[in-house]
Nucleic acid binder design. Structure first.
Ligand SMILES: [Zn+2]
Ligand SMILES: [Zn+2]
Ligand SMILES: [Zn+2]
Ligand SMILES: [Zn+2]
Lengths: 163, 163
DNA sequence: ATGCAAATGTTATAATGTTGCAAATTTCCC
DNA sequence: GGGAAATTTGCAACATTATAACATTTGCAT
């Protein structure tokens, strides 16, 4: 299971990436989903950035590899990774980020810093519970929650103090 | 103040639209914001649909009016309406819907039926509170909440039962 | 080997959103 | 009212994000 994400703090991110890829291989094996080289490389690229990557960012990185990919290649890989719970799409940014809780059943909640662009994924049962209750109250059958919080991360709050 | 939205139930929607426009005029007057004819017409078009309208849908409707508008016209009107709390953008749909609580300070939560496309805007203090608490726990300074719930509305749950 | 299904390559195009600048309109002050 | 300043609109081009359609290749089971 993935290590707990260290919110915004510097850390050896290569280890995060390595771990995420190892987890992904396990998860795909269990589900007999095929984590092909392109899919794995896209996942790696997304994990290597703490900030969400757009599909065309991924495309550009693939191009640097010498991989002459077209948009559908990237979108298909991203679809696969989403289907298998390995990445999340951030609707308010049109961008993708590695799932910090892959393999665990969860509904992500994303804290998006509008200054530095870093994103922290949380699972907050109290929030999910309140959302579920609100949906129930309207007899609405809940499928999927998009919950994205824009604001300032702790580091950027300090930085804006002495500018 | 706007009438309580009647979730998903049939009703005289023209009255909703009329009320929304009247409210909008009041609100803009108070804020000395200029609700110009184009902006008002865009708001009206958005309110006339229970389903969120895309910017290019609005554009097409304006074209039917004989208004030869270009995309910036629509996006600017939508920006204005958002700034003044008269419409919300639904990030997961790239579309816009009239605010059911214009003038009231609130954070919207949207129940989006994936079958019929109707959207109900709720305000759920318990949800906002839980989100705020979760952000606080990470020392994150919350600016804006995007909360969009996809699922099945009551009507569409029944409909899918006897298909 | 053969055949099928899944995955990828390729080209083109659709859908959504922005920039920059000029012209028109409104506001505000005199 | 006249005129400067600010806001709004018109317009053309462009940028970004995402998908459709169809051919080709690959992996895998019989
Ligand atoms: Zn996740
Ligand atoms: Zn930050
Ligand atoms: Zn609202
Ligand atoms: Zn419905």
């Amino acid at each position: 299971m993935p290590a707990r994400a260290l919110p915004y703090r510097p850390h050896n991110h290569d280890a995060c990436v390595t771990q995420a890829l190892a987890d992904a291989r396990d998860i795909c094996q269990q589900r007999s989903a095929r984590l092909t080289p392109t899919r794995e490389r896209v996942l790696e690229l997304i994990w290597q950035s703490h900030k969400p990557l757009g599909a065309y960012d991924v495309l550009a990185q693939l191009a640097e590899d010498g991989h002459n990919a077209a948009p559908p290649t990237v979108y298909r890989a991203l679809d696969f990774l989403q289907q298998n719970g390995l990445v999340h799409r951030i609707a308010s940014l049109n961008a993708f980020i590695g799932c910090a809780h892959a393999g665990e059943h969860h509904t992500g909640m994303f804290l998006i810093c509008r200054a530095c662009g870093n994103v922290l994924e949380l699972t907050a049962p109290s929030v999910s519970g309140a959302v579920q209750a609100a949906a129930d109250a309207e007899s609405f059958e809940l499928d999927d929650i998009t919950l994205e919080i824009a604001g300032l991360c702790p580091r950027c709050q300090k930085d804006s103090g002495h500018e």
